[in-house]
Simulated assay, not measured.
Amino acid sequence: MKLRRKHKFAAEVATSSLNDIMFFLLLFFLIISTVANPNVIKLLLPKAAASQQLSKKQVTLSVDANKQYFIDKKPVDPANLETELKTIMAGIAEPTVVVRFDKTLTVQDLVDVLQTGAKLNIKMVMATSK
């Protein structure tokens, strides 16, 4: 007497957790893409206890440890800094420049940059790390 099973077992792939995994991956990449900043020049910023957020259109002036000046990732000669800032800020009502200054540079270098902004009536804001 031969006994047969009525139901054959078929291999199945459990996809119920696949939706959760895809959701978390999508969320992860969305968060990373908003945090990433394409205008990044590696600097060691000084630390500050309090910070202020700006909501206006801003121009970033970065000075690295080798005293190379960058306006929004574009290298600028220090002698032409005033003319470059004047041309960039020509059409902006309330010009604001975020100064990202390497902490290894001297205070006199920072004062020279701030005097240039004061001469052009540009609001200069110092970027710091937390």
Results as ranks from 00 to 15, higher is better:
47 K>N: 12
62 S>A: 11
22 M>V: 08
42 K>F: 14
28 F>L: 13
38 P>G: 06
62 S>G: 01
22 M>H: 12
46 P>V: 11
76 V>Q: 00
37 N>S: 01
18 L>Q: 03
15 T>D: 05
69 Y>I: 03
64 D>R: 01
71 I>K: 04
59 V>S: 05
12 E>M: 11
64 D>Y: 05
43 L>M: 01
61 L>R: 00
65 A>G: 02
20 D>R: 07
11 A>Q: 04
68 Q>K: 05
41 I>S: 03
72 D>A: 02
42 K>W: 04
67 K>D: 04
13 V>L: 14
78 P>D: 05
76 V>A: 01
55 S>Y: 10
48 A>C: 13
52 Q>V: 15
14 A>Y: 05
40 V>C: 14
60 T>N: 07
80 N>F: 08
14 A>D: 13
35 V>S: 08
37 N>C: 00
10 A>P: 04
46 P>N: 08
80 N>I: 03
73 K>A: 07
76 V>N: 00
53 Q>G: 12
32 I>Q: 06
57 K>D: 09
79 A>P: 14
23 F>R: 13
50 A>Y: 10
64 D>V: 09
70 F>V: 01
65 A>S: 05
18 L>G: 00
63 V>K: 01
39 N>H: 09
44 L>C: 12
43 L>T: 05
23 F>A: 14
45 L>G: 05
40 V>R: 11
25 L>F: 15
57 K>C: 03
56 K>N: 08
73 K>T: 07
15 T>E: 13
53 Q>K: 15
16 S>L: 14
13 V>Y: 03
19 N>H: 04
